[in-house]
Computed example of a mutant assay.
Amino acid sequence: MTNLRLLEQFRSFYFKNYPDDMETQISYFAVFGGLDWDIDTTKSLKELIHTLVLENFDELYEKVQELTLGDKSYKRLLRALAVGDRKIFSAFNRAGLNNGNGGAALNYLQEKGLIEMEYSREVHPRQESPKAKLKRADAKHRISHKVFFTYPFIRFWFYFISPNFKAIQEGDFEKVLEDFELRHNSYTSLVYEELSELLLNYNLRDAHIISSGSYWDANVEIDILTVTENQRIYVGECKWTNHKINKKELHKINDKCQRLNIVPTQIVLFSKRGFSKELEAMAGVNLALYSSEDFKALVKSNPKGSNPKMLFS
């Protein structure tokens, strides 16, 4: 499901801070999105995290405590969702929660507006073959929905800050900054994926989209699967890495489509740093390529009256 709240935050961040380019916009938004702060995007992310977050840790910690009521199960679940695959059951396991207390924590975090559900589109083998005798693994398989964070900063907090709580309290910032340096590309990938879906659906705005979001089942995961009313299928993959995407990624996504028995109307690839010349030569009706600067389409205008709800406001 397209996250329109994220789009409002993305636009708000842009028109408040005016970063020089879209790669910077996406990188900095992935950390500070959802905060109504002035962000100097000419400074490095590490410097900003140091001065705006770590040096104000006590104040921010109290605000996070208010949002979570200081409840350990709520915070463990947020941590598990931030670093894991976003699937509810695996997050419960990672957080040491069961369906009872995990479900209660999930409900509270939803009601508080910190997370939203992304419902699976997988069809259980039992539904496909009601009378057939299923393999043991298929019979026991549980379809798990996923969760995405309403505010990028909350995910950043529980991805990088919360695990380093003791060191930060003692004034030792090196570990969290080193951790961020090592993993910030991997961390940003999820926000990039969500923004990529927004861009794709923006470009399909004249079509009637009936289903959109990531797709996952027991065997296959696809970053974006969008279906329109006239049964046009758009399959997308997103790569937030420091190298260009080459033809191998196209082979991988074609393989996934074959395993799902779908014939895409168009394959759509999103890349932080662009594409190989071979792949660029293949772009056309069946293959669309988007790099960072194409996300300017999402901030062409600042809608009048747009006032997205922000954290800590």
Score class of each variant (00 low, 15 high):
Met1Glu: 12
Met1Ala: 09
Thr2Glu: 13
Asn3Tyr: 03
Arg11Gly: 08
Arg11Val: 12
Glu23Pro: 04
Thr24Gly: 02
Trp37Asp: 09
Ser44Pro: 00
Leu48Ser: 07
Leu52Asn: 15
Val53Lys: 10
Leu54Lys: 07
Leu60His: 06
Val64Ile: 15
Val64Trp: 02
Val64Tyr: 02
Arg79Asn: 13
Ala82Tyr: 00
Asp85Pro: 04
Ser90Ala: 10
Gly102Val: 07
Gly102Arg: 01
Leu109Val: 07
Gln110Tyr: 09
Lys112Asp: 10
Glu122Gln: 15
Val123Met: 02
His124Ile: 04
Pro125Ser: 03
Arg126Pro: 05
His145Ala: 09
His145Glu: 10
Thr150Asn: 14
Ile154Thr: 15
Arg155Val: 07
Glu174Ile: 08
His184Tyr: 14
Ser189Trp: 05
Val191Gly: 00
Glu193Asp: 05
Glu193Ala: 02
Leu198His: 00
Asn201Lys: 11
Tyr202Arg: 11
Asp206Cys: 06
Asp206Val: 06
Ser211Asn: 04
Trp216Lys: 11
Thr226Gly: 01
Val227Asp: 05
Val227Arg: 15
Thr228Asp: 01
Gln231Asp: 13
Cys238Glu: 03
Lys239Gln: 08
Asn246Arg: 11
Lys248Ala: 00
Lys248Trp: 01
Asn254Tyr: 06
Thr265Cys: 08
Val268Ile: 13
Phe270Arg: 04
Phe270Gln: 02
Phe270Thr: 05
Phe275Ser: 10
Ala283Met: 02
Asn286Lys: 15
Asn286Ile: 04
Asn286Gly: 14
Phe295Tyr: 15
Ala297Ile: 10
Ala297Trp: 06
Leu298Phe: 02
Lys300Asn: 14
Ser301Ala: 15
Asn302Leu: 11
Gly305Ile: 09
Met310Lys: 14
Ser313Val: 13
